[in-house]
């Protein structure tokens, strides 16, 4: 049995978002439902400011808090490959998994449309699903959260289970450069132009992912939560780094009498963008 994992080299990643696009197309996701997102933020203050980015899929944790808290076992850890999957037929839409996920990688798409026009209204579904896009991949497995989800449930990245689970048994790495394996490679990995993503079996010591983690000191996001992600990041410090949550946030430097010093970075442009978005929504 494999324990599939991903390595993302932040020094190589260009933030092009091909991974986001490929994931959206492969899995027929809605706008705002970016299972695989690239988060942009900036660090420092003018004139010493750097634009940074950070690719963020579901971490498919070894000890996932979303699985722990689910009251119906609708989200579960697949014993065959270490995937964290959703069973749409068991989910009651309580959203406790969204609350419990430290990485913000779960989505409930019954809320207001993220962008206008509401694509769900443009391509409505007749069978109780969120939408019916004119072009969609054929895979459909509601018990594993694959395919377009029905209303009232939470969705998440599947690590492209429908592809990876078909890989030949015992293979250590799923490399898009190996012709006989490329069909089993997750969409986000396969399309990555600078080859910043690697996918393989973390249980096989000789796998490329294990070698990279060891050689380049792979780190896991928010490891202090105890979730033990199966996604590792490599960063030599040349470009992007694994950020803290605070560096993601736009700045609102507190002005109250109790404000501690150096509260937040200055990211005013992001705040302005967010304010526009909020105003649009209102």
């Amino acid at each position: 049995m494999a324990k599939w994992g991903m390595v993302i080299d932040l020094d190589t990643c260009t933030g092009c978002q091909a991974c986001t696009t490929a994931c959206t197309m492969e899995n027929s996701r809605l706008p705002g439902e970016s299972w695989q997102d690239v988060l942009f933020y900036h660090e420092g203050t003018y004139p010493n400011v750097k634009l940074m980015w950070f690719p963020r899929p579901c971490m498919h944790c070894e000890n996932p808090s979303c699985v722990t808290v689910c009251p119906t076992k609708a989200t579960y850890k697949d014993p065959e490959g270490g995937f964290v999957l959703m069973d749409y037929n068991r989910c009651i839409g309580c959203k406790y998994c969204q609350i419990a996920c430290p990485y913000g990688v779960r989505f409930s798409m019954d809320e207001r449309a993220f962008v206008k026009p509401d694509i769900r209204q443009v391509f409505p579904s007749g069978d109780g699903r969120q939408w019916n896009p004119p072009y969609q991949a054929p895979q459909d497995d509601p018990g594993r959260g694959i395919g377009i989800q029905p209303h009232g449930v939470v969705s998440k990245c599947t690590f492209c289970y429908h592809k990876v689970s078909q890989a030949p048994a015992g293979v250590a790495d799923l490399d898009e450069d190996v012709p006989e394996l490329k069909e089993y490679v997750p969409a986000c990995v396969r399309v990555c132009p600078p080859k910043a993503r690697f996918f393989g079996d973390l249980d096989q010591p000789q796998s490329t992912v294990n070698r990279l983690i060891a050689d380049k000191r792979g780190v896991r996001l928010k490891d202090e939560t105890g979730n033990k992600p199966q996604v590792y990041y490599l960063s030599g410090g040349a470009t992007a780094a694994v950020p803290s949550l605070r560096s993601m946030a736009a700045a609102t430097v507190p002005t109250g009498p109790f404000s501690p010093p150096q509260r937040a970075p200055d990211t005013g442009a992001i705040a302005a963008h967010s304010a526009d978005w909020t105003a649009d929504q209102a």
Binding site: V69, P71, T72, C91, I92
Partner: peptide, 23 residues
């Protein structure tokens, strides 16, 4: 508020999700 309130009536009690505070 729930996405599937009727499903919750059977899915929670028979899930035996002992690790979940909501269970």
């Amino acid at each position: 508020e729930l996405g599937h309130p009727l499903r919750a009536l059977w899915a929670i009690p028979f899930s035996f999700a002992f690790s979940s505070p909501l269970y």
